[in-house]
């Protein structure tokens, strides 16, 4: 799987965060909420007029909603071995 933005990633498939291209404020917030480059996450929904819903598999986190605009700035890649 090629690198793609989070909003376009397939739902229910584990992906790894490759890069976060957001501004400093958003990046700091994502880091504080435990989302880091290299973490395996899973997208739980197929967004249509709603934010992207993810779960961090690396830290067994609760669900996190990320606005569509911000999700477009998070690059991910297939995390399956």
């Amino acid at each position: 799987m090629k690198t793609t933005s989070l909003d376009l990633a397939c739902p229910d498939t584990a992906v790894a965060i490759v890069e976060i291209k957001a501004g400093e404020e958003a990046k700091r917030k994502l880091l504080a909420m435990g989302l880091h480059v290299g973490d395996a996450i899973i997208k739980l929904n197929h967004p249509r007029w709603s934010p992207v819903l993810i779960r961090n598999l690396t830290t067994h986190s609760s669900k996190i909603a990320i606005g569509l605009g911000l999700a477009r700035k998070i690059l991910v890649r297939d995390a399956r071995p």
């Binding site: 957001a22 909420m33 669900k63 909603a65 911000l70």
Partner: peptide
């Protein structure tokens, strides 16, 4: 507006 980042507790 800024983007949403929000935890959804169980």
């Amino acid at each position: 507006p800024s983007g949403l980042i929000m935890e959804l507790p169980d």
